[in-house]
Simulated assay, not measured.
Amino acid sequence: MTQAFRLTALLGLLLNGALFGFFYAWVCSTMWGLDAAAPEVAIRAMQAMNASVRNAVFAPAFFATGPVLLVAALLAWRSGQRALVAVLLALAGLVVLCGGTGLTMVVNVPMNEALALVTEAQIESGAAAIWAEYSAPWQVWNQIRTALTGLGLALTGAALLAARQAGA
């Protein structure tokens, strides 16, 4: 196993774990907590969280995981790894790109942007309906992207195990 492959694959594993963990935390705590709060509080908190997530700490996990895994797949193939290693990493990269980054950009981000446009007057007059219309579908799509990034993480781990078993 070349040093470049090792480092890239491990970076992909780390980034994938961070992304999966981020989505997973929304599944098992954040949204449940917001659903337990008053709807007007939940809306304002979600608006603030959505605005704050666009930052340099989160960006590498969100934008780089898929590409790093695809580069790791290419390096695995070029360094003479078993074909299985390259295929698993390529699948992981594609799953994360489509199911993590792509799904977020196509579904969750537009929902978040629509919520960001909700005014104080709208919150005061209909917070319960606004939150109910937002929270349930947002959570379904978040659970899907969580499962898919979890699959990407499992595929990445399986690729590293396959490379290790091959003695690389």
Rank of each mutant, 00 (worst) to 15 (best):
L19Y: 15
A48S: 12
D35K: 14
F5V: 12
A121Q: 14
L14K: 05
G167C: 06
T156A: 08
S52P: 00
L15D: 12
M31Y: 06
R44S: 12
P110C: 10
V106Q: 05
T101S: 13
C98D: 04
V118M: 09
L84V: 15
L89S: 00
T156V: 05
M111S: 00
A42M: 05
V96D: 05
G157V: 07
A114S: 12
L103P: 13
F58N: 12
I130R: 05
A18F: 00
W138E: 02
A162S: 15
L115E: 06
T104R: 01
A136P: 02
A51T: 09
Y134P: 02
A92R: 11
T2N: 15
W141P: 03
G80K: 07
L14T: 15
F62V: 08
Y24T: 14
A159L: 05
R54C: 00
E113G: 04
L94D: 03
R78I: 04
P60K: 02
T104D: 01
E40Q: 11
A48Y: 02
M111T: 00
A4D: 08
V57Q: 13
T8M: 08
A158Y: 09
G102T: 05
L15A: 11
A72R: 15
A90V: 10
Q81H: 14
M49S: 08
G80M: 08
G33A: 01
T65H: 01
A45F: 04
G93Q: 07
V27W: 00
L84K: 13
L70P: 09
L74K: 03
W32K: 10
A147C: 11
A38G: 07
F23D: 01
A38R: 15
A76T: 14
L10N: 05
S125A: 14
G99I: 02
A158V: 13
V71S: 03
E133H: 14
A166D: 13
E40Y: 00
P110I: 10
L19V: 14
A48G: 08
L7I: 14
G93E: 04
Y24Q: 15
A86Q: 02
I130D: 04
G12D: 09
A166T: 06
L161W: 15
M105E: 14
I144Q: 02
N50Q: 12
G100K: 04
W131G: 09
T149I: 03
P67W: 01
P110G: 12
M49A: 11
Q3L: 11
A76I: 09
A76Y: 13
L91I: 10
